[in-house]
């Protein structure tokens, strides 16, 4: 019902506009095109100034409404993120100045130099001095931005510090699989051909590799605050991306090509709840590369906690290898969801 109503209103509005438009053309002929042109010109010139003022107010108002909903109002949850936030502010300052300067000039000129019979356009085809000026000045500012940007970039993309906690995150349609290297701090080798979720090997770990025997598979990521962590990122089927908004980072997950990103978390989940005033606060992993119809539902959870809490969490986790081996001894009914099928012979 309301759909029809809306359509009817639209149709009516359209008809009204059309009639006004047609009528205005007759009027302009009657009044004389010169006069109509002058009047329209004045109106549009005025509208440009209105737009400028309304626009600036709008920019301010939008900021009032939404600045509080961005991540700027919280501190960056990672060390790297601090650099990123700083880079953001520097860029905002530079581009902001340019934005206001040029937009104001544009609309002010449009208004000020509106057609007037008394005015003569000034024949001014070129001036190389100006060209040099507005080539060199932007170049200088951009060099500054590039300088800061690359300095931070190399700081973020360099090797993870020795002793970083390694966590492997594997993306698949449509969830994240997490694996810890266990006490030997080495992740066991994987071979995708061994993937068999119904047999407890959703990750395709090669159980023949001894270092896989203490690897722990978990449903969420737990990190120790102030301890650097290196994510080793894989994907099983299509390209995903480990998006870490609070940490200001992300990294693609590509099938066949492992990627890494490292950072140091600065605030525990509990601390963030206090800082943001949001008792439901949680560090979420968002998938940031189109991966299919469930792309919007690939949520991962990161818990940042103290060393003690982490140890406690890890303590009662059994390595996946152990679970699988135990399972082999006693036949277990396959419980869950899996869209998993046993290793399929290719029949294409």
């Amino acid at each position: 019902m309301s759909g029809f109503f809306i359509l009817a209103i639209l149709a009516l509005a359209f008809l009204v506009v059309f009639q006004i438009a047609k009528a205005s053309e007759y009027v302009s002929v009657l009044k004389g095109e010169e006069k109509t042109f002058l009047q329209n010109n004045k109106i549009n010139a005025f509208l440009f100034i209105v737009f400028l003022v309304a626009g600036l107010v709008g920019v301010w108002y939008c900021n009032e409404l939404y600045y509080g909903k961005t991540l700027f109002v919280q501190p960056s949850a990672s060390d790297h993120g601090e650099k990123i936030d700083k880079m953001m502010w520097i860029t905002l300052a530079v581009t902001g100045v340019v934005f206001f300067m040029t937009q104001i000039m544009l609309f002010w000129f449009a208004y000020k130099y509106q057609y007037s019979e008394k005015r003569k356009a000034y024949y001014y085809p070129h001036n190389n001095k100006w060209e040099v000026l507005w080539t060199v000045v932007p170049a200088i500012f951009l060099t500054v931005l590039v300088g800061f940007g690359l300095y931070y970039w190399f700081g973020i993309t360099k090797e993870a510090p020795q002793g970083s906690q390694v966590v492997e995150i594997t993306g698949k349609q449509f969830n994240w699989l997490v694996r810890y290297p266990g006490k030997d701090a080495v992740l066991g080798r994987k071979n995708y051909r061994l993937t068999n979720a119904s047999d407890g090997n959703a990750l395709g770990v090669d159980w023949e590799d001894a270092s896989s025997h203490d690897d722990i598979e978990a449903s969420e990521v737990h990190l120790v605050v102030n301890k650097p962590v290196k994510f080793v990122i894989n994907a099983q089927d299509v390209i995903h991306d480990v998006g870490l908004p609070h940490f200001r980072l992300k990294m693609d997950a590509v099938p066949g090509i492992p990627t890494t990103i490292w950072f140091t978390p600065k605030y525990t989940t509990a601390e963030m709840k206090k800082i943001t005033g949001n008792k439901d606060f949680v560090y979420e992993i968002s998938c940031d590369q189109m991966c299919g119809s469930g792309h919007y539902s690939m949520k991962g959870i990161i818990v940042v906690e103290t060393q003690e809490e982490y140890n406690a969490w890890l303590a009662d986790k059994k390595p996946q290898y152990v679970t699988v081996m135990e399972g082999k001894k006693t036949p277990v009914a396959v419980a869950d969801s899996a869209t998993a099928k046993p290793i399929a012979a290719l029949s294409k």
Partner: peptide, 26 residues
């Protein structure tokens, strides 16, 4: 990429100067 911002900026300033002291018909 940031280099490509420079000719873009040049163009914007040239457009602004085009309308400066013109006699604009809207």
């Amino acid at each position: 990429t940031l280099l490509i911002a420079i000719p873009s900026a040049v163009k914007v300033f040239n457009w602004l100067t085009t309308i400066w002291r013109g006699n604009l018909r809207f």
